[in-house]
């Protein structure tokens, strides 16, 4: 993904976040540009752009540098990452049923919460990810959705990523945005099964990267996918507005409108500086 500021001065050190290189997994998508410090140049030079990834040889070659540096922008997007982790943990809850033994004839049984409780909790986690943008209304940036879903779901297959980067990076980014957006909306509708979401994301990604005919589910999922595509036509969409789903005839749109109404009234974040990849606080200069 394209970004501004390929180099940063040495003086920016105090504003940068350090990450130990050994903690970065191969093929994990970077949440922002990653920089290395070169002593000879006395500068931070970017080695990877946002949504790019490191291969195992790259990581082993760069290990000697010990740290990657990330811009202060990551502070505004870490909540999206944390939300992804929380939802993943929530969806990973399962029943804990222990067989009774002679030593413990009445073991404690913990049942996973019912689906509607999970859907409720998920919405409470997703809600604050929506922000009220000045002069634009409630919305969310597709990049931030991708960060969230990237944390929620498993790593994408290396073959897909390598092929996508090789063929067309912009197309890969678009496929990532779209697949993440579909998953994000599916969560809003209560599709709270992690394996299904992983599967859905991968399917959408593959279809968009390879321009293959979409696989149909023949239920309201098709409607959801279609609606997602309509709301995110290309990578130039900076902000997806919550009111996109208002006053639409599709059943899915009506359901989403009802859920987002709850989000906007109870959970949406408000503030003078909503997170954004654009501008000084982001990594794309406008």
């Amino acid at each position: 993904m394209e970004f501004s500021r390929k180099k940063l001065p040495k003086e920016d050190l105090s504003q940068l976040y350090r990450v130990r290189i050994e903690t970065i997994q191969p093929f994990a998508l970077m949440i922002s540009p990653a920089y290395l410090y070169f002593k000879a140049n006395e500068k931070f030079v970017s080695v990877k752009g946002p949504l790019d990834f490191f291969t195992p040889p790259e990581i082993s070659r760069l290990k000697k540098f010990k740290y990657f540096y990330f811009p202060s922008f990551v502070a505004s997007i870490l909540p999206f990452r944390e939300a992804g982790q929380k939802v993943q943990a929530l969806l990973s809850c399962s029943d804990a049923i222990v067989e009774s033994t002679s030593e413990n004839p009445f073991p404690a049984i913990r049942l996973a919460p019912p689906s509607y409780e999970v859907a409720d909790c998920v919405l409470k986690i997703l809600g604050p990810l929506w922000w009220e943008y000045p002069n634009q209304g409630a919305g969310i940036e597709p990049y931030l959705v991708t960060i969230f879903v990237n944390e929620l779901c498993q790593l994408l297959p290396e073959g897909q990523l390598l092929l996508g980067r090789e063929k067309d990076v912009e197309k890969l980014d678009h496929a990532l945005f779209r697949s993440s957006w579909v998953v994000f909306l599916a969560l809003h509708l209560g599709y709270c099964d992690l394996n299904f979401l992983n599967d859905l994301r991968l399917r959408i990604l593959s279809e968009n990267m390879n321009d293959t005919a979409p696989v149909r589910y023949w239920n309201e999922l098709d409607e959801l996918i279609s609606l997602s595509y309509d709301s995110l036509k290309n990578t130039r969409v900076r902000l997806i507005h919550a009111n996109f789903f208002s006053d639409r005839s599709e059943k899915i749109a009506q359901k989403l409108e009802a859920r987002l109404a709850r989000v906007l009234s109870h959970f949406m974040s408000k503030g003078s500086q909503p997170p954004s990849i654009f501008g000084k606080r982001g990594f794309i200069d406008v």
Binding site: A119, D120, V122, L123, G190, K255, A258
Partner: peptide, 8 residues
């Protein structure tokens, strides 16, 4: 209105 059960 549509109501997700989780919204109740």
């Amino acid at each position: 209105a549509y109501y997700n059960l989780g919204d109740l």
